[in-house]
Design a protein around this nucleic acid. Structure first.
Lengths: 231, 231
DNA sequence: GTTGACGATATCCTATGGGATTTGTCGCGA
DNA sequence: TCGCGACAAATCCCATAGGATATCGTCAAC
């Protein structure tokens, strides 16, 4: 907090959101293990920001159930076991599948063309091996957002977005397996949407989400997230 | 900011949470219609608190998708139509039912006795016609929380808690129909739990949640929440 | 009538400080 | 020696003030 304010962060979106993103990554990277205590004021000085945006970021993490508030005592990183991840992605797959199925029934020609364009952007970025992770993640996000908008179910899309915070970009964008699986999933999904086949769209989307789950689980295993559990 | 700080609020839980509760009630009561703009600083002076807890409360509402943030322009009350409510409670019923089913399989004698005790507290408060709404809502909450704990699915319980913010206490505790339906639902649920009958427990709980949905819908109709929609 | 720039307003964040509560330690008594 | 109560330190929670930046309304110019 000596010289220039934001020290180790970029400066594109709002500050609380960037802090929340950083904390989410630290938690899922194993840097902050479940049970770790977080002191807001200390975090603020460590990150080089003031307490206000840190407070807000911790509130956001609390809404994701990634930290829990201990009144007058700070925050703790919430527990997360294999069962939790399984539950989370089971719901995620179900809801995302439902959204895809609804989109299949509600999509007009223009909407379909728009989705195809977004999918093409994603595919193009996937093909580039040295591509920007952030650009790829952004394109993927826009694709899903457009699909959800087409489905016309705001609250379902909201729930999906909540749970999606458990799968940050850098845990999948650089995985070769995910890249190949994704182009295939998008292809099958778009074919189903074009045909208005809700059931196939649902199935393709569910499979896509479960691919993401497998990636996250593999990552968590790799970093030893579960610690000394009974394996 | 003139004299004593907290002017029109109680003082039991944390301040941001109380502000969030108050805003949630205002929105679902029709006082703040979807599309209404909210200015954080103005809200702060109107409520007689500082901008800091208001910021945090609005962040919490944003996590519930009850308001949306417009960067540098404040917040808007999020849209909510009949389809949204239907979706929300369909998911809520499914997840709550799942939790009940798991509890049926995982409950030991002590846990069952504890739940029966909590249910008895709820029933006692329901019988008292002039009973305290807050006490009843608190007892009901503890009952469901204990059940969710017994089910051992943290993330499912978390998702249920998010969506539950759409059903504030005062929209159901004073409804006679809800009171009679609730004692019956609890009785059937406890019987199923005692017998370890997961399917019956699930069905009873789903019906219980859908009762709550019907109450909310009736309330929203009564206050003219939907406004000039095509009915 | 449309476009451009200017000033007012409000948000977002920083910085600081006080009040209240919890934690940790010490001393006392059993 | 062990349990218990009180004091001190640390920390959170919230209030307040102030500055940097983006948006909106207005007005002049083309």
């Amino acid at each position: 907090m000596s010289d220039s304010g934001t020290a180790l962060l970029g400066d594109a979106p709002a500050l609380p959101e960037r802090v929340a993103l950083l904390l989410r990554e630290r938690i899922l990277s194993g840097g902050l293990r479940p049970g770790t205590f977080l002191r807001p004021d200390r975090l603020a000085v460590d990150l080089g920001v003031s307490p206000t945006p840190v407070r807000e970021a911790l509130q956001a993490l609390r809404a994701d159930d990634m930290v829990r508030a201990l009144p007058r005592r700070g925050f703790v990183v919430a527990p997360l076991d294999r069962g939790d991840v399984a539950d989370l992605f089971a719901v995620q797959a179900h809801l995302t599948g439902e959204l895809a199925a609804r989109a299949a029934g509600a999509l007009d020609a223009g909407g379909l063309a728009g989705l195809q364009g977004l999918a093409a952007e994603v595919d193009a970025l996937i093909e580039e091996p040295g591509g920007e992770d952030l650009a790829l993640a952004g394109a993927e996000h826009r694709f899903h957002a457009a699909l959800n908008r087409a489905a016309g179910a705001r609250k379902l899309a909201w729930l999906v977005g909540r749970a999606a915070h458990y799968l940050p970009p850098r845990f999948y964008t650089d995985r070769r397996a995910w890249r190949t699986a994704t182009v295939d999933a998008h292809r099958r999904l778009l074919a189903a949407l074009a045909a208005g086949d809700a059931d196939t769209a649902r199935a393709a989307m569910e499979a896509h989400v479960l691919d993401g789950r497998d990636l996250l689980v593999a990552h968590l295993e790799a970093v030893g997230f579960w610690g000394a559990d009974e394996h």
